[in-house]
Design a protein around this nucleic acid. Sequence first.
DNA 1: TTTTTTCTGTGATCTAAATCACACTTGTAC
DNA 2: GTACAAGTGTGATTTAGATCACAGAAAAAA
Lengths: 221, 221
Amino acid sequence: MPLFATLDREAMHALTAQMTHKTFKKGEVMVHEGDRPLGFTVIREGSAKAYRTTFDGREQILYIFPANDYFGARFLLTEEKVPYSVEALEDAKVCILSKAQFIALLAEHSEVALQIIEAMANRMSRLELVMQSMGSRNAELRIASLLLEFKDTYGQKQGEYLEIALPLSREGLANYLGLARETLSRKMAQMEEEGVIESVGAKTIRILDLARLQELSVLVE
Amino acid sequence: MPLFATLDREAMHALTAQMTHKTFKKGEVMVHEGDRPLGFTVIREGSAKAYRTTFDGREQILYIFPANDYFGARFLLTEEKVPYSVEALEDAKVCILSKAQFIALLAEHSEVALQIIEAMANRMSRLELVMQSMGSRNAELRIASLLLEFKDTYGQKQGEYLEIALPLSREGLANYLGLARETLSRKMAQMEEEGVIESVGAKTIRILDLARLQELSVLVE
DNA sequence: TTTTTTCTGTGATCTAAATCACACTTGTAC
DNA sequence: GTACAAGTGTGATTTAGATCACAGAAAAAA
């Protein structure tokens, strides 16, 4: 677990002993928006999405947590309620540290605290980017930005091109971007026609023209 | 300065001695997006907006910093470049702590570190809310949410009603919400007709029907 | 004060994306 | 393997908000 990589063997063992382990099936909800936090949660296997349900019934996805990512640090320290629901995107195994244990860990190991701050900072920086791109209501720009964001986490050089193993269905992508599913479909089809991307099955996207994608994400068409 | 309220007299004096003081006139830019950070900056007097300029020339306002607020903690710790420009909304006096000084302060006074984390958490929580409300492209909802957000910071009981001293012009508000200025104007006029709000001059809004405003911010019209 | 500039409101028009509707495809369950 | 469900693509239509255009108001400068 990269987060605890800095801990020595003993500290690591002590920590492991304290943790609660849980498994969730695909589609199961780990915490519901408004619940009391179950604790600081590290996703060992699988992945999850964090979302809020809006007044009109849509779900707005806020974060995707890949394997080895974690959640709960922020709202464990400041809030008494969970600000979003977290649902497993695939079968998942997680480790949970209670609030008291987590705070003790931070107090004892300031390296871990620093890493948490850094992760928070990165998420903020992403949220700021999202705010910027949502400010413009340009669907293509938002899609291009999303693909570039996913590239780093889910992309892999596959032969000549970069392939992204999407963590979400088309519907999920639309909910992440705050777009209608149909709009996403149409725009992606259009990007495929233009030779920027190529879909390989439902959950894989191949980037054919990275430079063009970067342009789309920044320039006006 | 509330941030340093926990420091004892000595520590406070030592800190004050280290700080650089600067003044900015209304409209002056304190830091430009992309610059090297000037340091951790506390706004003693006046207020400021943090924004990014988008490809199409619009400015997307990300944060408003009122007096006694601060910025720079997040990107001082993780990034080498300033992620947004900060411009004084009124004549402003600021205190600046260099990166080294700031890090030393955090190391010595963990209470301050905790307060910073808390502030970061609050900003994240606001960004998440913004992401949710921007996901729905409903202008009225976004305006209502903004007014409620400002209510806490800039609102004051004035006789029977709550008055908000807006920190931004209509144009600024529109840039904060990612709306066209005209749309904001029209919607606010409509809300005024409906008796939800009342504008008192350009920079003051009176909330007449708080309950209705809260409904608008959450429910579909 | 007068002048100039910036800001704001409002009508007319345009447009990108939402919504509706439905066939098709893929995946899961039985 | 078949049956059912969920997910997806695509056309037709609607609509909220953007854009354009301008006049009046307010603020800043002279």
